[in-house]
């Protein structure tokens, strides 16, 4: 990534952070319903991997913490927010909600709410790519806890067996809902678990986007060049609870503070300042501009959009 790339990515990461924090507020105001899983703290994972890949060209699939992955693939934040508001202008016309953002035009193939469910779907998309002969790859972003599902093992086996062009990105935020990894999982290093299937794997820091990018580049090149599946484990942390109903009683404030010292946005910001590419004033202006954009464009669009038409309740069940 050039310094210009990094500055653009910083802008995106600030948008991703402020978008999610605004969602938090809207949820408190009961504008957003259902379950809401937020991404702050993990921004370098999605951004680092997708900078090494081709957003809008490669197929991306993920779990329920999905807003930012969609936006990174090219989704309009307005349309994502409208979906969170349940509006007719939302990405799924109000039928999906926070956990089910989709944007087929940008090849964001959806957020799914069964832990581990996207594993075989991602391998299947890779099978389709293999049959159709394209240069796309399939990228599956999931959390560490998904690796305790049976389909994780079934999928690793088939992905390697059939040499499928699929990249599995494990965003290891150390907790499966409210249970820590070491209390749920016999082998804590997740990248080691795929060795049994002969899948290439690596583990790296998920907070410094330069580190993520370098490792993701290797992973993406491996998959795109036809060498088969790859599993990349990124060590990260979510600042907020698993969802909005989570009071984080299972972890200490000291641990949270420790991770906030390695904030992915601050790390990138400070590097750009040190390189003379950014000033602190510019950064603060960027934050203010981002907040203004979210308020005047994104929230305004969601607020002013119409509710779905009840007479269309049964649309989109069957083709």
């Amino acid at each position: 990534m050039t310094l210009d790339d990094k500055k653009r990515v910083l802008q995106e990461m600030v948008l991703h952070r402020r978008f999610e924090e605004r969602c938090y507020q809207a949820y408190i105001e009961r504008k957003i319903g259902g379950f809401l899983h937020l991404y702050p703290g993990q921004e370098a994972c999605c951004n680092g991997v997708m900078e090494a890949a081709r957003p809008g060209h490669d197929y991306v699939i993920t779990g329920y913490r999905d807003h930012i992955h969609a936006i990174k693939c090219g989704s309009d934040p307005k349309v994502v927010m409208a979906e969170l508001y349940g509006k007719a202008t939302g990405s799924s016309k109000g039928r999906g909600g926070s956990m089910h953002i989709f944007d087929a035009a940008h090849r964001f193939m959806g957020g799914y709410a069964l832990v581990g469910g996207p594993f075989p779907l991602a391998a299947g998309m890779a099978k389709a790519i293999q049959m159709q002969g394209g240069d796309e790859i399939s990228i599956c972003f999931l959390g560490d806890a998904a690796n305790n599902q049976g389909v994780f093992h079934e999928t690793m086996n088939m992905a390697k067996l059939w040499n499928l062009p699929v990249l599995f990105v494990c965003e290891n935020n150390l907790y499966g809902i409210g249970t820590s990894l070491d209390r749920s999982t016999a082998v804590v290093d997740q990248y080691k678990r795929v060795c049994a299937y002969g899948v290439e794997a690596a583990q790296c820091d998920g907070q410094d986007i330069d580190v993520v990018y370098e490792h993701a580049k290797v992973a993406v090149d491996h998959v795109r060049s036809g060498k088969g599946p790859y599993f990349l484990e990124l060590m990260t942390y979510r600042y907020r609870g698993h969802s909005m109903s989570d009071s984080r009683g299972y972890r200490s404030r000291e641990e949270e503070d420790h991770w906030k010292l390695r904030d992915p946005i601050n790390i990138l910001r400070d590097k750009l300042i040190a390189a003379g590419k950014l000033t602190m004033d510019e950064f603060q202006q960027l934050e203010r501009n981002t907040d203004a954009y979210i308020e005047t464009e994104v929230i305004a669009f969601a607020e002013s959009s119409p509710e779905p038409d009840v007479s269309e309740l049964e649309h989109y069940v069957l083709a």
């Binding site: 779907l121 391998a123 998309m125 890779a126 389709a128 049959m131 159709q132």
Partner: peptide, 26 residues
């Protein structure tokens, strides 16, 4: 073998794999 796939005995896995492929027109 690319179009007539003997799968492992992994019903959840290969069913999901087939579904994922169908998203892209298979």
């Amino acid at each position: 073998e690319k179009r007539v796939m003997d799968t492992p005995i992994s019903e959840g896995g290969f069913t999901g794999l087939g579904i994922g492929a169908s998203f892209l027109g298979v």
